[in-house]
Nucleic acid binder design. Structure first.
Length: 301
DNA sequence: AATCTAGTCAACCGCCGCCGC
DNA sequence: AGCGGCGGCGGTTGACTAGAT
């Protein structure tokens, strides 16, 4: 009856992930895709529970994650969505491609809350904060009354500022017309093509587990195209681990057309098959196809 | 230079809904 | 039908770092 327990938690490692553990997890998922998390630690040779592996992957190692602070636009979007959804971080995160619920939650608690309070806005209700309780002098003077009225004025201005900043954020319609994490495949063809032998052993790497991501691990590889999902632009990693943008074609073009792109005398040739739209939504379907479909490989001529 | 404090964020904990058995 | 595991979620913790004293 029922299922076997996820893990007995005996002898399992906790705490920060090492770069070696990261490599194992990345290699396993790039090779096998995201399947049953319960089975992942055993199959990948990790002394972690499946839950920990899932968290590490979704919050840190996923190749489509954006790193760094949220932009002003993203911050405004988070504030807008939070006013509608409350602390439903995963729902909020689903509207910010490349951002995780954990990341947004942390940013909210460390940056946005303070920012809103400074603006005189209650981060919980998104309404103007009540004015601070007045000092208890025996008789309010005329000067104090003037001060109180000016406080009210400030709150009104701040409220207007809030409305303005929210109205400056794009509408949900606009957002939904663009990429949404729910619609974006979690993995890219070239990422699946990375084999264990091609992942550099970075024992000399100075990167710690906290800043090890797929880009660090791939930095020694040859030309490797990928996509910037937010902008729909194609970009590549070079052997220095930097990202080069190719502005002259985009993801949709890559899906639907054969493309030759000239860039600094290099030619990028992409001949992806035209996939049915649903194929781009399902990681397992995607990865399986990629593993067997040679035409997804990109070549630098 | 040493210590303290505040800020940041990765990771864990515990709860909940769904669904397999 | 109901038990219980899995995956997802939100809240919280604690290690680490940078700046202040």
């Amino acid at each position: 009856m029922g299922r076997q327990p996820c893990c007995d938690k005996v002898g399992l490692k906790k705490g920060p992930w090492t770069s070696d553990e990261d490599k194992k997890l990345i290699n396993f998922i790039l090779t096998n895709g995201q399947c049953c998390w319960r089975a992942v630690p055993k199959l990948a040779g990790l002394l972690r529970c499946g839950k920990s592996c899932r968290l590490r992957w979704t919050n840190y190692l996923r190749p489509d994650l954006k790193r760094g602070l949220l932009s002003e636009y993203e911050e405004n979007l988070v504030i807008d969505l939070h006013s509608q959804l409350g602390n439903r971080w995963s729902k909020i995160a689903s509207n910010l491609p490349g951002r995780t619920d954990n990341e947004i939650k942390n940013h909210w608690n460390t940056h946005i809350k303070k920012k809103l309070r400074k603006m005189g806005i209650d981060p919980l209700t998104h309404k103007p904060l009540p004015p601070p309780p007045p000092p208890p002098p025996p008789e309010p003077t005329q000067e104090q009354e003037n001060q109180n009225s000016s406080e009210m004025e400030t709150v009104t201005i701040q409220d207007d500022y809030q409305k303005q900043s929210i109205s400056e954020a794009p509408s949900m319609e606009v957002i939904n017309n663009g990429f949404c994490t729910d619609e974006v495949p979690l993995m890219e063809p070239h990422e699946i093509l990375v084999s264990e032998s091609s992942v550099p052993c970075s024992s000399s790497s100075t990167s710690t587990s906290s800043n090890t991501n797929i880009n660090n691990l791939l930095e020694d590889l040859d030309f490797l195209p990928t996509f910037d999902w937010l902008n729909g632009d194609a970009c590549t990693t070079n052997n220095m681990g930097f990202w080069d943008m190719h502005d002259d074609f985009n993801y949709l073009d890559l899906l639907n057309n054969d493309i030759d792109s000239d860039r600094n005398n290099d030619v990028l040739t992409a001949n992806p098959p035209s996939l049915p739209p649903s194929a781009h939504h399902d990681f397992n379907q995607y990865s399986g196809m990629v593993m067997e479909e040679e035409s997804w490989k990109f070549e630098l001529m």
